[in-house]
């Protein structure tokens, strides 16, 4: 595969969860539009960061990518093949290459299984990857790769701290030698000092195994640190996407600007001269999203057009000629650059 060619192409992905009423005669009365038309590419060896607040659909997106949910419509192409159309054996074999790391290291590991069984479990489903006799050695190797003592193979999850458990979850994700890892808030549950260890580990593993990551998080600082490209999600759609410099230093979508300006910066000197945009209200319910632009109900720039026409995720007309960092996709009718992150 040529470098820069997309490994994963996601097109118009939609996941609606039906809302039903009645017990005997269930009828659909609506739908939670968790993911509502998401498209992006993921290239080999690259990290795509997906940020957004709770309810924006980022976790549903993760579950769609690894095949834990079936999309309502849309396609996911892995190496050119539409995996949403696959089933049975063909699906199983593709899934091997797309693995997941979960958020909560306390509930995502079975407390009754030893660490060896947890990390080795993927081999039960994909026995072709490692012959039975070789599994113990492989699991020990994986423990070592993620920085745990290989002798811990017979211990149980409760004997480990949160950070160590997340390493176990990562080892399980690596067991099948996947090409893509979808990590859903992998460091959110960890303390600051331990979070840095796990972030460093993820970066080191990426170099070592040439992994591609979809890194989903609500912490914008962590996402900037680890990602090559970033997609900002709001109510099931991507609001803005670009490189870390484009999104953080030259955002053009008002939601991205508000989100960035709200992040507390660990520098009291920056307190006084920061551009704070305080949004009013909460995120609308994905069961009843606003017409047109989903952000218009909280946006200070909203005009009648925003209620009528859904802004496309594309480079806005005013920046199409530009060669600067404002030239990136932003789903806003009235996109303009605004610097909200204090630069050093």
């Amino acid at each position: 595969m040529a470098p820069g060619e997309p490994l994963l192409e996601v097109r118009d992905l939609v996941k609606h969860f039906p809302l039903t009423q009645g017990v005997l005669f269930r009828k659909q009365i609506g739908a939670v539009k968790a993911v509502d038309g998401v498209s992006f590419d993921l290239r080999k060896g690259e990290t795509l960061g997906v940020v957004g607040e709770s309810g924006c659909g980022k976790s549903t997106l993760a579950r769609l990518l690894v095949g834990l949910e079936r999309p309502t419509s849309g396609r996911i192409h892995y190496r050119g093949e539409d995996i949403t159309a696959l089933s049975g054996r063909a699906l199983t074999s593709v899934r091997r290459n797309i693995q997941m790391v979960f958020q909560d290291p306390y509930t995502s590991l079975n407390p009754r299984m030893t660490v060896g069984d947890i990390i080795g479990e993927p081999y039960e489903i994909h026995p072709e990857v490692a012959p039975r006799t070789d599994r113990r050695r492989r699991v020990q190797e994986l423990l070592e790769v993620v920085g745990l003592n290989p002798e811990f193979i017979n211990r149980y999850p409760h004997q480990f701290s949160g950070g160590q458990r997340q390493r176990i979850g990562i080892a399980r994700g690596l067991a099948l030698r996947p090409e893509i890892i979808v990590a859903d808030e992998p460091v959110s549950a960890l303390d600051v000092s331990v979070q840095a260890q796990v972030v460093n580990l993820l970066e080191q593993l990426q170099d070592e195994f040439d992994l591609s990551y979809v890194f989903i998080a609500h912490d914008l600082s962590v996402v900037r640190h680890i990602s090559d490209r970033i997609a900002v999600m709001y109510l099931g759609r991507i609001a803005e996407t670009g490189t870390d410099e484009q999104i953080y230093d030259h955002p053009t979508h008002p939601y991205t600007q508000a989100l960035l300006s709200a992040v507390p910066v660990p520098d009291p000197e920056a307190r006084a001269h920061r551009d704070r945009i305080l949004l009013s209200g909460d995120v609308p319910s994905p069961a009843d999203p606003p017409s047109g632009c989903p952000f218009r109900t909280r946006c200070w720039k909203a005009r009648p057009l925003c209620a009528e026409v859904v802004p496309p995720l594309d480079v806005p007309p005013e920046f199409r000629e530009s060669t600067g960092p404002a030239h990136h996709a932003s789903a806003c009718h009235f996109a303009e650059e605004r610097h909200v992150v204090p630069s050093e």
């Binding site: 331990v194 840095a196 260890q197 970066e203 953080y248 910066v265 992150v341 630069s343």
Partner: peptide
């Protein structure tokens, strides 16, 4: 100092984080 150095920053990308070794 370790805490301050181990948090990623919003205003620049940086490369490796300076993690505090070990556990509390």
């Amino acid at each position: 100092r370790g805490l301050l150095e181990s948090i990623p920053r919003l205003d620049h990308k940086g490369r490796r984080l300076h993690a505090i070794k070990g556990l509390p």
